[in-house]
Design a protein around this nucleic acid. Structure first.
Lengths: 354, 354
DNA sequence: CCTTAGCACTCAGGCATATCGAGTGCTAAA
DNA sequence: TTTAGCACTCGATATGCCTGAGTGCTAAGG
């Protein structure tokens, strides 16, 4: 069931016009718009065929045509031209990405915000939390006689710390002992291997040290937990109100509240495992989540390093500028991968440009 | 210009009925509703007076009355009954607050989310970033020959760290030297005292160490900067769509985009300096920001320790359940103050209940 | 066989009109 | 000072009409 060249051209024109104007497009407008030298009547015939084959839809009998999800799919797969970003746009993205060297989770959140601003759609970003992480190392730093800092480093080289204040005195040698104990007993263990028994044994070896071992290990467990079940960062949810398909407050509200439920969102996004390294586009009913059945999602994945991956994407109406969004998203994702890949360089060191 | 008891009663009934139903309330309904034994005609007379004095407004001639900002103000100041939270509600709040011991900024964000969920209004939370902070201490921990962790502690006892990877080798003694240098040259300095010259001098003293000093100090500066210009955490913006005054998408959008501009929000909130330690209520035009002129803001402050304060609050239509919101907010704020005030206790240590 | 012109038909959206009823303000009596 | 009664106002809702964009179909033309 191949489509003729002309029908493809017409379909493409319908999609692009509708993306731009959000109005159903009619045969006459198409005759003027597309570079076709046929009359509106001919186009009408083709439109009827395309509608019958499910690529287009008609809101009501006397209205123009609107692309169906199937139509968008064909457009995305075959008709869409790869969009190249302007120099200005790439510069803007680069600047934003390199602005500050920050903690991993902050960077991810920041990237989400940027994408949302860039595309005018709500965006989200997350790090995939699949891998079983372990603690690589503990350090304890004495601050004063009644407080110390615990520094915990995971095997994915994420470092977190926390200040502990104590109800009692503590000396440097004691702390040294604790550090060694922690490093021998708990390094290399995954979250579920950090059992209460293990902690009790270590606690015992430490001798009456006010349960400090458990305290520090609990912290380490929290770190592992938060990394493995890593958060979804959403941004710019208010952008859905920019688009006419959400003039209906009820619809907008449904989508918004869905977007603010981190958990279900994370689940929905983990599912369409990004096989290729490229961007992935889910149109309307292709989404698994019911709440997204009449929205589209564009995803891109990036490498965090150590084999870990992250996902960044936007949500919007099916009438979405797929070409632009996909281009921007994949550029940002690339940028993120590079950011995480490169070691920290002293300022002033010339960076490799490509 | 004192109001009679009856007029106060009527005003209060109008406010409370309107808060509940969002419908203008008429004389007949009031006669039934308020515990008054007068007829609707009498109430009409009083309503006319109240309207003339500016406590009530009339959307149009043949509609009921609606409280004006002035009316809400009187209600809040004199007529409103302090709301006590149910045991269930306090329990819910306590659980959420004590669920996890987290980093300062996470706790604040979490609290905002909680408040939003609790009240069904958009919420925000921030730590006031007024104080001039200084670095209290540096620690460098060698991870392997090509990477180390820098731990920076401010005089407000906030601790941050970062992993640095180097393009060259580094030994333990070198790191020791760097640590001492950092601690002697940069401790106790405020952000603007960390001048480039100071860094150059220290760099020189360190001898060719790949600009590591600058690297670590830049990180410290970022930490100070982010703490002093502390972020505003907003949550639950989508809740504004729950309320009928924002059925108009245009209005909703305006407010939403205002709420997502962290900067202006922070500014707007810093202004009404919370003098008393209690909650503060800003009704409609009492807000300085134009965008908030027809919304109300309820604020509560909490202590972070070391004399630092934070603000937590919600935004909503002027028709807001002030009593409930204020009660919840101040309870959460109290909880936060306690949370920050108490030292880290080993698990199992019984906590003081009040 | 494909394309085109012509034409009758459909239907959402805009506009004017009519109706309804909640709520008011005013007056006069209690 | 309160109350009952009544005319009046005006938003909300319903109804009908009209318009015009856009269609599908048919018949003629390349």
């Amino acid at each position: 069931m191949q489509l003729t060249e002309r029908k493809k051209k017409i379909l493409r024109a319908v999609v692009e016009s509708y993306i731009e104007t959000a109005e159903p497009v009619g045969s006459k407008a198409l005759a003027a718009l597309a570079g076709l030298k046929v009359s509106s009547a001919t186009i009408r015939n083709d439109l009827a065929d395309l509608t019958e084959q499910g690529y287009l839809e008609q809101p009501h009998t006397s209205a123009g045509r609107v692309p169906s999800p199937k139509g968008y799919r064909l457009y995305v797969n075959e008709l869409m031209e790869e969009q190249r970003l302007s120099l200005e746009e790439t510069k803007q993205i680069n600047d934003a990405l390199h602005l500050k060297m920050q903690e991993l989770d902050k960077v991810i959140g920041q990237a989400g915000r940027m994408v949302s601003q860039l595309t005018n759609y709500p965006a989200f970003a997350m790090a995939e939390g699949v891998r079983r992480l372990t603690i690589k190392r503990f350090d304890l730093i004495l601050v004063d006689s009644a407080s110390f800092i615990a520094v915990v480093m995971t095997d994915s080289s994420v470092v977190k710390n926390k200040l502990f204040r104590l109800p009692a005195e503590l000396s440097e040698p004691q702390l040294q002992l604790l550090t060694t104990l922690l490093n021998t007993a708990f390094v290399g263990k995954t979250l579920d291997q950090l059992t209460p028994e293990l902690m009790r044994v270590a606690e015992h070896a430490a001798g009456g040290s006010y349960g400090l071992i458990s305290l520090v290990v609990s912290f380490a467990m929290e770190v592992l937990d938060s990394l493995e079940n890593s958060a979804v960062y959403t941004a710019g949810a208010s952008h859905i109100l920019d688009h006419p398909e959400y003039q209906d407050v009820g619809k907008a509200q449904k989508l918004m509240s869905y977007l603010s439920e981190d958990r279900s969102l994370a689940q929905a996004l983990a599912l369409p495992a990004l096989d290729g390294d490229d961007t992935k586009i889910l149109i309307g009913p292709e989404n698994v989540a019911d709440e997204l059945k009449d929205t589209s999602v564009v995803l891109a994945s990036y490498d965090i390093g150590d084999g870990m991956k992250g996902v960044i994407g936007v949500v919007g109406p099916t009438r979405m500028d797929y070409a632009k969004v996909a281009a921007k998203l994949s550029y940002v994702a690339d940028g993120l991968s590079k950011l995480f890949g490169q070691p920290e360089l002293p300022p002033g060191t010339p960076e490799k440009e490509e």
